[in-house]
Design a protein around this nucleic acid. Structure first.
Lengths: 219, 219
DNA sequence: GAATTAATTTAAGCAAGCTTAAAATTATTG
DNA sequence: CAATAATTTTAAGCTTGCTTAAATTAATTC
């Protein structure tokens, strides 16, 4: 298979599309750091392959086949992430890039073997859901951005946005990990920054940080 | 890095060159299943990058830099093989192909981490030596092809040629693995096929098979 | 609803890495 | 050593996936 580029497009569409299933060429170009013209080019090929529904100047969405293919790519990526984190001991902020460089190469057999070794994980190290062999996603968890939690609430970290390595590194630095329990001590009015308690230590985090950490209410 | 093709050329040159260090364009083309013209093309680029010494119509050999780069690729490949075999439990005859598809993607950091997990293995699952971080190879072992062993000799399997998956599968099937002890019970005169004893069972192997299994004399 | 702005597509072109066919060079052999 | 054979290179061309610039279409705003 020599579909690395196509696979990257399908993953990006799957990952960054709107809740109604559509995505703009614009956004794809942005996420893949390429020109709009290149996206138009590739969309024609993907449409021709039956992976996307596409009409000139109109919205883009995955077909059933495209959905399946993309979901499998996301599955591959996330299983690699868990494997690298748990088996190889690679830190949180490095697994995404490494997994991206490995996801196109591995055979399905290897992916399935790793999944089994990991005892069929449901979420990757950032809390994103992992589709199983049949494309089924784990039951969705009800989460809110930490920024919406109120003073006094006790919450558990369930997912973080992994758009930036330094962000993840920062989170590790202040002790925020998946499944960590936090208590909101205070929310400052003027900039919405928060004082939260982690492991009985208090830290101050900006509202931008808080908006990218997703939590589950515990009380 | 987008050097997949270049890396494949360098690996092939390293792996398939003659003992005097030279290799013919011919052979590279053959091993990589591409045309001679493509090889000429790439040799110019590799020469330009300082990885090979190359003059039109003349012999090809790696420069010091090329040697280093190639050795590192071989290292990456073989560490993947050991990892897939020992940690993931992938069979002998499948690790080569899988490793080939992963070797370009992994970071040096990951390779080093895997090497450490594996306690710095010196040989891959086929008995080929693994260069260490500094490019040093393990001490060379004195081996002979099994086909040269004589009736009555006791030998230990040290390396096998991995040019063909079905060959490796066949070897597993009759019980031949690395470090296995064998005794040559008989060598048939007319076709040089051998009767050898493995785990107290006698099997008959052709001279071609025997020529691709390398052993160490035990007595 | 016309004008402006934003998004998308077309057009032309480039680099990498391949192909086949023909030409050039080197090697072999009678 | 000349003829033939084998190897290597050049030439022309193809595909993929990208680029920038210009043209087209859609969306927004006055």
């Amino acid at each position: 298979m020599q579909n690395i580029s196509k696979e990257d497009y399908l993953s990006a569409i799957y990952k960054y599309r709107e809740t109604d299933g559509t995505i703009k060429a614009n956004r794809i170009a942005d996420k893949l750091s390429i020109s709009n013209a290149a996206v138009t080019d590739m969309l024609k090929k993907l449409a021709n392959d039956g992976f996307v529904d596409y009409k000139r100047y109109k919205g883009i969405r995955l077909t059933k086949n495209g959905e399946e293919y993309a979901k499998n790519m996301v599955r591959r990526h996330r299983i690699w992430e868990v494997f690298l984190h748990q088996i190889v001991g690679m830190p949180w902020d490095k697994v995404h890039e490494e997994a991206h460089n490995l996801e196109h190469g591995a055979s399905d057999e290897l992916i399935n073997k790793m999944e089994e070794m990991l005892d069929f994980p449901e979420f990757d190290p950032h809390g994103d859901p992992i589709p199983d062999k049949n494309g089924l996603l784990p039951k969705q968890r009800h989460t809110i951005p930490l920024s919406l939690a109120a003073k006094g609430e006790a919450v558990e970290v369930v997912r973080v946005n992994d758009f930036d390595n330094s962000f993840l590194k920062y989170l590790s630095g202040i002790g925020i990990k998946l499944n960590k329990k936090l208590t909101i001590k205070n929310v400052l009015g003027f900039d919405k920054s928060m004082i939260i308690s982690i492991d009985n230590k208090e830290v101050n985090i900006s509202s931008t940080i808080a908006a990218n950490v997703f939590v589950h209410r515990k009380n």
